[in-house]
């Protein structure tokens, strides 16, 4: 028997006056899935997320979360945690008071001590929010989002402003949430984070999906790339064995759908002609490349 998707968006449209921010967007997020909503600046991903979170009303279309309208707070909010893009805590409350307040209002059971331990803010429990650094505020935000291990967690730019250790800790906590069965919806500008973790990615551009699918489905739409530099001085070189273009930094660029085979061809050519290939890079297409391709459209 098919299960009801945790999030079901059908032909969502959202306009601000004359500006059509989201156009006929449809997607679903299944239980336990890690879904990344990515996009260029102004693509409409935050607007989409705000409708799904229940912060904004759609101009048209249907949005269901756990089978309910996302505006039905009593039905939906106790089951979801939201990490907003900006903190939104009162400067005059302490970390402990802030977590306790928001946690209590989610109507899920948990303890301040546990969630502060998750985000390594235990030592700051009695510090006023006004005295926290930007990264600490992001961790506080995450702490309130994961209060009570919600079934659905929205993470809006979760690692912005975090140092490496804090990022690792945050992703470890997200991994733990997934082990516990939580569904994760992520927006981020750090594409490698989405590439490493997302089961599926929705890539938005100008209010609509440019592509949607698994990371490998998206990256397969572009060829893999081999980049290398050739010696600037010395005798003339024989022709390259593969079609290549020159990039801005002088490197040669080979695009290929058969990465391993063509890499062999190139290395064989270099060995045969005793040519040193400097700064060689070879790899499958990354989300970054797909992203740049959108920007070039």
């Amino acid at each position: 028997m098919p299960t009801t998707p945790v999030i079901d968006v059908d032909r969502l449209n959202l306009s601000y006056g004359d500006f059509h921010a989201v156009k006929d967007l449809s997607f679903q997020v299944e239980r336990g899935e890690f879904y990344a909503l990515l996009g260029t600046n102004g693509a409409g991903k935050t607007s989409t997320l705000e409708v799904v979170e229940g912060h904004r009303t759609a101009t048209s279309g249907a949005v269901r979360v756990f089978g309910h309208s996302p505006r039905d707070r009593r039905a939906v909010r106790p089951r979801m945690g939201i990490m907003l893009q900006e903190s939104g805590f009162s400067a005059d409350l302490t970390v402990r008071e802030s977590v306790h307040l928001i946690g209590k209002l989610t109507q899920r059971g948990d303890t301040v001590a546990r969630v502060l331990d998750v985000v390594d803010l235990t030592r700051k429990a009695d510090t006023l929010v006004a005295q926290l650094s930007g990264g600490e505020k992001r961790r506080l935000d995450f702490a309130t989002a994961v209060w009570g291990t919600p079934e659905l967690v929205f993470l809006d730019e979760p690692t912005t402003g975090l140092d490496i250790q804090s990022r690792d800790d945050l992703w470890a906590a997200v991994d733990k949430l997934r082990e516990d069965g939580s569904t994760i919806v992520l927006t981020t500008h750090y594409l490698e984070e989405a590439q490493q973790r997302a089961d599926r990615v929705g890539l938005m551009h100008r209010g609509a999906f440019h592509m949607e699918g698994t990371v490998s489905e998206l990256t397969r739409t572009l060829p893999a790339v081999i980049r290398f530099a050739l010696p600037a001085a010395g005798p003339a070189l024989p022709a390259l064995p593969l079609p290549a273009t020159r990039e801005g930094d002088g490197k040669h660029r080979v695009e290929t759908a058969r990465l391993q085979e063509d890499l062999h061809v190139l290395l064989d050519w270099a060995r045969t002609h005793a040519v040193r290939l400097d700064d060689i890079e070879a790899g499958p297409t990354r989300l970054d490349d797909v992203f740049r391709a959108i920007g070039n459209d």
Binding site: R74, L84, G88, L105
Partner: peptide, 17 residues
């Protein structure tokens, strides 16, 4: 003040009406 600091939005992301 609560709106400017996004505290209102924070509260509206909870289960309270």
């Amino acid at each position: 003040a609560r709106r400017q600091t996004l505290f209102l939005k924070r509260l509206s992301s909870t289960a309270v009406s």
